[in-house]
Amino acid sequence: MVERFVIWRGEDPERADTAAVALSGDSLSARGASTTGSYALNFVLTTGPGWVTERVRVHTAGTGWWRALDLSAREGVWAASVAGEGDGHLGPAGVADPAALRGALDCDLGLCPLTNTMPVLRHDLVAAGRRGEEVTVDFRMAWISVPDLAVHLSPQTYTSRGPAPDGGAVIDFVSGDFEAALHVDADGLVVDYPSLGRRVGAWAA
Rank of each mutant, 00 (worst) to 15 (best):
L101T: 05
L153R: 09
G176I: 06
G129L: 04
R140T: 01
F173K: 09
R122Y: 00
P113G: 11
S72K: 14
D108V: 11
G76S: 10
L111C: 05
D97F: 04
L182E: 11
F173S: 12
S72T: 14
W143Q: 01
D97K: 12
Q156H: 08
M118F: 00
L121I: 05
R102S: 12
L114H: 04
V174C: 03
L111E: 00
G64D: 11
V135R: 07
P98F: 03
H123N: 02
A164C: 11
T117A: 06
T63N: 14
E133H: 02
D97A: 15
G129I: 03
A93Q: 08
P163R: 07
C112Q: 01
E179S: 15
H123R: 07
L101C: 08
S154V: 02
A99S: 10
P147C: 13
N116H: 14
R102N: 05
A79E: 13
S154H: 01
M118G: 00
A83C: 00
E179H: 13
D97Y: 06
G132V: 04
V146P: 04
A79V: 07
T63A: 14
G91S: 12
N116S: 09
G64H: 04
A164G: 15
I144S: 04
D185S: 15
R130A: 08
G103C: 09
G176Y: 05
D108R: 05
H152Q: 13
A181T: 14
L90H: 14
R131Y: 06
D166G: 15
V170H: 11
D177H: 14
M118K: 00
H123G: 01
C107P: 01
A100S: 15
T63R: 13
V120I: 13
R131M: 02
Y158Q: 02
V120A: 02
P147L: 09
L90N: 11
I144Q: 04
M118S: 03
A99M: 04
V77M: 07
S72N: 13
A128W: 02
A79R: 13
D108M: 10
P147H: 12
E179C: 08
A128Y: 04
S160W: 02
G94Y: 11
G103I: 09
P92G: 13
C107Q: 05
M141W: 05
R74T: 10
L105K: 14
L105E: 15
S154A: 12
Q156V: 10
S145Q: 13
A127K: 01
G94Q: 09
L182T: 12
H152K: 14
L71P: 01
S72R: 15
A104E: 08
D172R: 09
A180K: 10
A79S: 14
A80W: 02
G110H: 08
